[in-house]
Write a protein that binds this DNA or RNA. Structure first.
Length: 584
DNA sequence: AAATGCAACG
């Protein structure tokens, strides 16, 4: 009878939880004891093998009924189950491993450590990882490639790329998984150049990349807006024959959108043979952050009419983002309602954040505040910062002060909030308040994040800081800046120096002309690139109002399309106007 | 027996 039950598990077990429950009930009816290790082993195995997340408490119940001592396979399977569940369960995987050690009956084997390390990687606990690493070596498993690969993943996930690289360097045999893991480690930790260098090395050894390799490299480039690097990866992707790989295409789409190349993203989307809801969502979000809200919504309408495509919560974040950044307040509320009622998606704090932004950005800051007060969850620092940002733009200093007090409690020492408030006071010519904020910044030991702008010419990236004079062509750049300002004045440009003024250090204020980094970068591009060619700037902070109005005019006067990637979004400047329609 | 993408605000 037990053999029959096991056969049943083997033939139907992989399909569904309902089937497994039925087989379990069947076995009880026919007198097969759950404490029988052979049957219990199979049942746990199939439970844990169900698509994620596995029914772990059910599996654990079966586990606890199995007669002692429990063999190592069963221990491993349950550890694996916990490792594949959400983060909260990773701790249980570790404590299960400890129980196994103290039970004294079995020793961990070669399978135990990859499962355990997976759980520790999820926890991103580098100290625990190091401890287990030394245990692994002591037990003689340190030279097994799958254990080493697990270690690579662990260190990468903990942000300790140097330890990952050390493990990698000492591996005598490196398979594609090892290369992917270490490349992903660098890519995920903001080191796309290193990731790409490793890729080049891998390529020179004749190892072919797969979809994972491409995804790691491209998402790293997307994060930092490295268009030239990413384009190189696109070429590798073509060379490796991965142009039909869905994941790679999705991330390529995201990459182009995140580099401001909306046309390329759209073309790619149209040409993709296989598309899933992630592809649609990526383009919707891409259009939204690039300021093409109307197009994002059009695409969403299109998506709704397609069979078998369901928008998810992220799709709605994109849609609500599109509405808030285009001033479509009424539409935003309507989509929020439909998300809950038609799609049964419970709004998360991100969605409420969009709604606060929707009201606040449209100037209804008081209503936004009331909305925050009525939210079913505790507002986080992002929500308050949204309100603060809108208050500084719409000049509600009382509410701005209130929002800042909330932020100060949740996250002290964040320079951006001081700067926002100080800029608002400056725009109202409340210089004593500006001084007060600046003094407070000094006494609180808060240092402003210096603004910088990156531009690419050919294969080189040039970086400019505020008032930067370190570039070898500095004289030419400043001559161009002077000419630029003169020509803009003729077009009616009035410099609003207040934003710049509070940004610079006391000594520098004596120099009459201090330019924000984006202006310097644009002047540099005007002299370094052919006429009419588009200019891309990646900035680490938000563009100030003065630079924004200046760049609008530059796009007209110099007949250049200028794309500025902000800290949070894109501005496409063309013929004297911006895709954000000054709605930011 | 390692592993993938899209996410509000700043």
């Amino acid at each position: 009878m037990i053999d029959k039950c096991i056969t049943l598990l083997q033939t139907h077990g992989v399909s569904s939880l309902t089937k497994l429950r039925k087989i379990h009930a069947f076995s009880i009816r026919h007198g097969v004891s759950i404490s029988d290790a052979e049957f219990g082993k199979h049942l746990i195995f199939y439970l844990v093998s169900l698509p994620s997340p596995p029914p772990i408490s059910y599996a654990h119940k079966v586990f606890s009924k199995i007669e002692k001592p429990i063999n190592v396979f069963i221990w491993n399977t349950l550890i694996r189950g916990y490792a594949e569940c959400s983060l909260n369960y990773s701790v249980s995987a570790v404590s299960l491993y400890r129980q196994m050690r103290v039970s004294g009956f079995v020793e961990p084997d070669t399978h135990t450590y990859p499962f355990l390390l997976k759980a520790v990687a999820k926890m991103a606990d580098v100290r625990l990882g190091e401890t287990i690493h030394s245990v692994v070596i002591r037990n003689g498993f340190g030279s097994l490639i799958f254990v080493q690969n697990s270690l690579l993943h662990l260190y990468g996930n903990c942000g300790d790329v140097m330890s990952a690289y050390k493990v990698f360097d000492e591996m005598s045999v490196k398979d594609l998984v090892a290369w992917n893991s270490v490349i992903n480690g660098f890519a995920e930790n903001g080191k796309p150049n290193e990731a790409l260098a490793l890729y080049t090395e891998m390529d020179s050894k004749g190892i072919k990349p797969d979809g994972f390799t491409i995804v790691s490299l491209l998402s790293a480039c997307a994060k930092i807006g490295a268009l030239t690097l990413g384009k190189r990866v696109h070429v590798y992707m073509i060379k490796a024959g991965l142009t039909r790989n869905l994941h790679s295409n999705n991330v390529l789409l995201d990459f182009y959108a995140r580099c401001g190349r909306v046309e390329e993203a759209k073309t790619l989307f149209d040409e993709m043979v296989e598309k899933n809801s992630v592809s649609w969502t990526s383009l919707i979000v891409g259009l939204a952050v690039n300021g093409f809200g109307k197009e994002a919504i059009e695409l969403f309408t299109n998506m709704e009419s397609k069979e078998g495509l369901l928008p998810c919560e992220i799709t709605f974040v994109g849609i609500l983002y599109a509405c808030s950044h285009c001033g479509m307040v009424k539409e935003g509320f309507e989509y929020f309602r439909r998300m809950r009622e038609e799609y049964k998606i419970e709004p998360r704090i991100e969605h409420f954040g969009c709604m606060v932004d929707l009201l606040a950005r449209a100037g209804q800051v008081k209503k936004a505040y009331e909305y925050i007060m009525k939210m079913p969850m505790q507002p986080n620092v992002v929500i308050w910062r949204t309100l603060l940002g809108a208050c500084t733009i719409h000049g509600d200093s009382d509410l701005a002060e209130l929002a800042r007090m909330q932020i100060l409690q949740l996250e002290p020492n964040h320079s951006g909030d001081y700067v926002l408030l100080s800029n608002m006071y400056a725009s109202e010519q409340r210089w004593s308040d500006v001084q007060k904020i600046r003094k407070q910044m000094l006494s609180d030991g808060v240092r402003k994040v210096p603004g910088h702008s990156l531009v690419e010419v050919g294969n080189r990236v040039h970086e400019f800081l505020i008032g930067d004079k370190s570039h070898p062509q500095s004289d030419e750049i400043y001559a161009k800046l002077k000419e630029m300002t003169d020509r803009l004045r003729l077009e009616g440009y009035m410099p609003q120096i207040s934003n710049v003024y509070v940004d610079v250090e006391e000594e520098e204020k004596e120099n009459a002309l201090v330019y924000h980094s984006e202006k310097i970068a644009i002047a540099f591009m005007l002299i370094s690139t052919p006429e009419r060619s588009p200019i891309r700037v990646v900035k680490n902070l938000r563009v100030c109002a003065d630079c924004h109005s200046a760049i609008k005019l530059v796009s007209k006067v110099y007949n250049r399309e200028i794309v500025v990637r902000d800290r949070s979004r894109f501005h496409h400047f063309k013929d004297g106007s911006c895709s954000c329609l000054d709605y930011w």
